[in-house]
């Protein structure tokens, strides 16, 4: 009998069962969060607290990053476009890149690093210190009390942060393109207004960011809620949040782009 072969096949089986189990658990978890939707209206203060720690505290990094990304787009775009004598399209290039791709994706990645990992660590520590078990002992539904408000705060924050990122980025591009490199101010804005479509570009980008916020919130809270309740487990879960969310953002970005912009 060749036991190593059996063990190998069994390990594949165990991996598949664990994967399916994890996915099913995450799906049920999400359903449970949605069932507690009414807590937003019953106890809006919970949502406001989370909007502060998830959204407001992320604003600074979003604004700084957006500004520098816009500036580098202005610089690189100018250097490329001036070769074709097309530097008048700089505003269009900066705005399209920001609203369609860079705004939603970079905001989602920054949000994962700044807020997603913090959510996982916070929930994981609550679990490790048995605060979640204590809530259950007091007949308080932990999903209702601590998870739902965090999830909806993430879903709500990411599109708003994306919009801020895009606006600041456009001004960063404006600073470099118009103030420093001498593209005409009127041409910068008019080429942007002519070429950027409200529905395709701006709403398309915001829909993307809404989906990203949904998945980041889901992944981060799921990882925290089901982590191993010890320090190594919390650290693994936090890493898994950042890795899984980033991969989800990139792959979803391609799928959403193909769905929305390919027609």
């Amino acid at each position: 009998m060749n036991w190593t072969g059996f063990i190998f096949v069994a390990s594949i089986g165990r991996w598949a069962i664990e994967l399916t189990h994890g996915l099913g658990r995450a799906g049920l978890f999400l359903g449970e969060v949605f069932l507690q939707f009414d807590v937003l209206f019953r106890r809006p203060r919970l949502l406001i607290q989370q909007l502060y720690s998830v959204g407001v505290l992320t604003v600074l990094i979003i604004i700084l990053s957006g500004f520098f990304v816009g500036m580098v787009l202005g610089l690189q775009g100018y250097n490329t476009l001036v070769g074709f004598g097309a530097e008048s399209s700089l505003g269009l290039a900066v705005a399209k890149l920001l609203t369609r791709e860079l705004g939603p994706v970079l905001t989602a990645l920054l949000f994962t690093g700044r807020a997603g990992s913090a959510l996982t660590a916070e929930i994981g520590l609550m679990k490790a210190t048995e605060q979640i078990a204590a809530l259950e002992m007091m007949a308080v539904n932990p999903v209702r009390r601590i998870i739902a408000s965090r999830f909806f705060a993430a879903v709500l924050s990411v599109p708003l942060l994306t919009a801020m990122f895009c606006v600041v980025g456009v001004f960063g591009g404006h600073l470099v393109g118009v103030e420093m490199l001498g593209v005409d101010n009127g041409v910068f804005w008019s080429s942007m207004q002519q070429g950027v479509d409200l529905y395709d570009d701006i709403f398309g980008g915001l829909i993307k960011s809404l989906v990203f916020g949904f998945f980041i919130g889901w992944i981060a809270l799921n990882q925290g809620y089901f982590c191993q309740p010890n320090s190594a487990g919390i650290s693994r879960a936090t890493t898994a949040t950042v890795v899984t969310s980033s991969l989800a953002v990139f792959s979803l970005n391609y799928c959403l782009t193909a769905l929305m912009f390919s027609a």
Partner: peptide
């Protein structure tokens, strides 16, 4: 934060789009 987000969307819609 919420107001700034809404103003940003409005700015994108009016001035960029």
């Amino acid at each position: 934060f919420l107001l700034a987000g809404v103003v940003s969307v409005a700015f994108l819609a009016m001035n960029v789009g």
